[in-house]
Design a protein around this nucleic acid. Structure first.
Lengths: 346, 346
DNA sequence: TTGAAAGCGCTAACAG
DNA sequence: CTGTTAGCGCTTTCAA
């Protein structure tokens, strides 16, 4: 097997010192002439030399690794049965590729035991971390204690006040969804959520719902609100059975604060011979990739998780490389009109 | 901020040498007494010491990083719009967690330019790589040249002969799918695929289809075979339009060699008022997570991508740690009965 | 503009 | 069983 060359080999071949090779590789200003640069570059080319990040890392005290901490949902493994985490990772990866893949991503799940996550960050000497969704407070504490560059995504709870955060315009999303339903002639609109008092995200979506209602002088009825415990498909199935007899009587449409639940709802309702959107209209929230593959295709609020990943990564790199200050970044949302809403005006 | 401690600090506190600390940490046999072990462990605990993998890595010439090379599908970014890669990553991660997360995963996409992938492997000093799906031959060449432990998943082309491979019982899957259709009374069954001459995987599924047919003395008709160009949702939509007039006349069911296409087909057919499974039955292949969320739920062949990730990782670690020899690992498949097939016997 | 030498934190010979 | 010492491949003073 071919020997793995080091900068010493390059230096020998080019007839310069290791220092100079290093300076050329890292493009340090005023440290070499054009002439030496060419010599070094030629030697690198000839030997097919590749820098060893491990060594660079040890000497610089930087790993060029960014850690992503992902939530693990009930009963599944990390990344499993999930329709958006991979989009998020993809976005991060995308941004990293725009800065020449200097950094690599490593990831872990949040339900690993406490010490694991802390140790993981330290032993890998991770340069920065991105936390997605509601992770536990003890993680935030560790992060603060470690003084490691961090970006929190989609968690606006007080415990995250000290960090840079990326989140979306949830209120606007709720507003857009509800308004669209109203403009399609719906006056009685159910609000299906996973707990407006537990999560600011949900709360904001609810506020958007309320705002649209009052803008059109529609009354808000507590009885039109349904709170679910878990954020997964089965909650949609569950709520479908619960509200099926109210459809057409108490309300003609629903704004559901997450796609996966909306999809469970739609599928179950159709099993019960309630046709979507003919008998009942629904607007979701998230625009997970799944939502355009179901029948009928789901009208929803797009939050572009992919782009969110990009922004989170960009912000993190700014903090790592330029000591950028804490920032709150709100991402815009938009309505994606597909087929799950019927116009009942005429 | 708290100083980051090194083994030298631990050694000082415990009153032993660095070597001894290292020996204890790595649990090297016959290199320390129970007594020293306790001293060292106490010191580690007290200092909240964490080993620095970067340094360990440099000195051992091992990175404890495994690289996963993922395909990138047309027009999308890595991991995007995809319903199985994350399951695969999840499986790898799962196995790695059973060996105490000694290794971390880093990943990259295959359409990055050639040099990038090679450089990436070398500069990170990756310990081993897992390739998923049909990647390019030049990658296999690099891998061979680099003599790096490698496991190839789902690619049986000649170029992969020299590597350990993980794949599934495709023929059995094709057989099971077709047999199930036949046992439900279907005699004329379309075979929708993405090219049996391009991919051994497709070829094997086709062979299973043929075997079931002949076992039940059913004729094979070339005209019942439809070959698609791309492996994605839109191909299903496309083929739906193409075969809609043959349904009920030339055939009453279809075995589709991939779920995502089967789903495109089903959705489009239902838009055309052809009811599944009442008017037409379909069995898919893959059991992607999406397939249980569509309506009707898709009957399909489960290939357990998650488990495939586990096996690939297990095999790779064996190669890395025990110089295990090249192996071919075939994973079993099974039929998952859901709602897209109608019994037309009675 | 260049180079010598020290050091990042760890492991591995080797000697005791 | 324990410790000394010499690297692993790079960056970084500091001096020339």
């Amino acid at each position: 097997m071919k020997k793995k060359y080091t900068i010493a080999d390059v230096a020998d071949l080019a007839g310069v010192s290791k220092t100079t090779v290093s300076n050329v590789i890292n493009n340090i200003e005023n440290k070499f002439t054009e002439e030496t640069k060419i010599k070094v570059l030629k030697a690198i080319e000839k030997l097919d030399f590749n820098i060893n990040i491990g060594a660079k890392s040890l000497s610089e005290g930087k790993s060029y690794l960014i850690g992503v901490i992902l939530p693990i949902y009930k009963d599944t493994d990390i990344l499993q049965e999930n329709f958006f985490l991979q989009e998020f990772l993809s976005g991060i990866n995308r941004y990293l590729s725009t800065i020449k893949n200097k950094y690599d991503i490593i990831f872990t799940g949040v339900n690993e035991n406490k010490f694991n996550i802390k140790n993981w960050i330290r032993k890998r000497a991770i340069d920065g971390v991105i936390c997605f969704g509601l992770t536990s407070n003890y993680i935030y504490e560790y992060l603060e204690q470690l003084k490691i560059p961090t970006v929190i995504v989609d968690d606006l709870r007080d415990a995250t006040n000290g960090f840079s955060r990326v989140y979306i315009a949830d209120k606007k999303g709720g507003y857009l969804a509800t308004k669209y339903l109203i403009e399609n002639g719906h006056k009685d609109i159910a609000f299906i959520n996973t707990g407006i008092n537990l999560s600011k995200v949900e709360k904001n979506r609810f506020n958007g719902y309320i705002e649209a209602l009052s803008e059109y002088n529609l009354n808000f009825y507590e009885s039109n609100c349904f709170e679910l415990k878990y954020l997964h498909y089965d909650s949609g199935v569950y709520i479908a059975d619960k509200i099926k007899d109210l459809i057409g009587k108490q309300f003609t449409a629903a704004f559901v604060t997450s796609d996966i639940i909306a999809i469970g709802l739609i599928n179950r309702l159709q099993e019960l011979e309630i046709k979507i959107p003919n008998d009942f209209s629904v607007v979701g929230f998230d625009n997970i990739s799944l939502s355009k593959y179901i029948y009928p295709k789901l009208t929803t609020i797009d939050q572009n998780i992919y782009k969110k990943g990009q922004s989170a990564a960009e912000e993190l790199i700014k903090i790592i490389e330029y000591d950028d200050i804490k920032k709150n970044i709100e991402m815009d949302v938009s309505l994606v009109i597909r087929e799950s809403v019927k116009n009942v005006k005429e």
